[in-house]
């Protein structure tokens, strides 16, 4: 555990909590892509199956359980409790265009051709692109609530910090996982445009809106 890994995990946790609180406090999930949230729930479910097969640490177990529970709670709020506020008309990203290539890639390029390993690889690949329906929704409506941009910022920051974590682990532990690193790079790159808008607009007190 190094500082990048820890702050990365906390950033991830912050993102998840910010989104849950936003929906809960405003009693609305307007502007949130339910499709992205379903994909994230799928990511956690397929990655954390090892909760049943191996114990790493109390920290590891607790964080995994929190992530999974929050992911399903978010999906429930969007498609259940606050369904009336869900903006399905703008959440039109074709998820099969992500899922099919990701399944194929996970079957073809993995560390070992075993069910658990393929599911883990699938979750890594899927996570790297799971935010696309959300970004697509924002580009379609041309704007995002400020609290939604904070969510996206912490979610993007998390994988960026993991990149530094992997550099650290490469030098000090000889650890290197090509699949995680490449997927993490892709994931981070997808946020670059958003990071730019966040820094130049939101942090200066302006609402994030895109030119028509």
């Amino acid at each position: 555990m190094n500082i990048f890994r820890l702050t990365g995990d906390l950033s991830h946790l912050a993102a998840i909590i910010i989104l849950l609180l936003k929906i809960w406090k405003t009693r609305s999930c307007a502007g949130i892509s339910g499709k992205s949230q379903i994909l994230f729930a799928l990511v956690f479910t397929t990655r954390y199956l090892d909760l049943f097969s191996s114990f790493i640490s109390l920290y590891n177990t607790v964080m995994k359980v929190i992530y999974i529970m929050c992911a399903y709670a978010t999906v429930y709020l969007i498609y259940g409790k606050f369904k009336a506020t869900y903006d399905g008309n703008h959440d039109t990203f074709r998820v099969e265009f992500l899922l099919i290539p990701v399944v194929l890639l996970a079957v073809l390029i993995n560390h070992a051709f075993a069910p658990m390993e393929i599911l883990w690889t699938f979750s890594i690949y899927l996570e790297s692109v799971a935010i696309l329906p959300q970004l697509f929704m924002i580009s379609k409506t041309g704007e995002a609530e400020t609290i939604t941009t904070h969510y996206l910022f912490f979610l993007g920051l998390y994988r960026t910090l993991y990149l530094f974590n992997w550099i650290w682990r490469f030098y000090f532990e000889g650890f290197f996982d090509l699949i995680a690193v490449v997927a993490g790079l892709v994931q981070t790159i997808l946020y670059c445009d958003f990071f730019y808008l966040y820094i130049t607009k939101v942090l200066k007190g302006k609402k994030l809106s895109l030119p028509a």
Binding site: R5, I56, S57, N60, K64, Y67, N110, A112, F175, I179
Partner: peptide, 10 residues
């Protein structure tokens, strides 16, 4: 086992 070492991450 290849690829098993990273499973301590989240």
């Amino acid at each position: 086992r290849p690829g098993s070492c990273q499973k301590d991450e989240l």
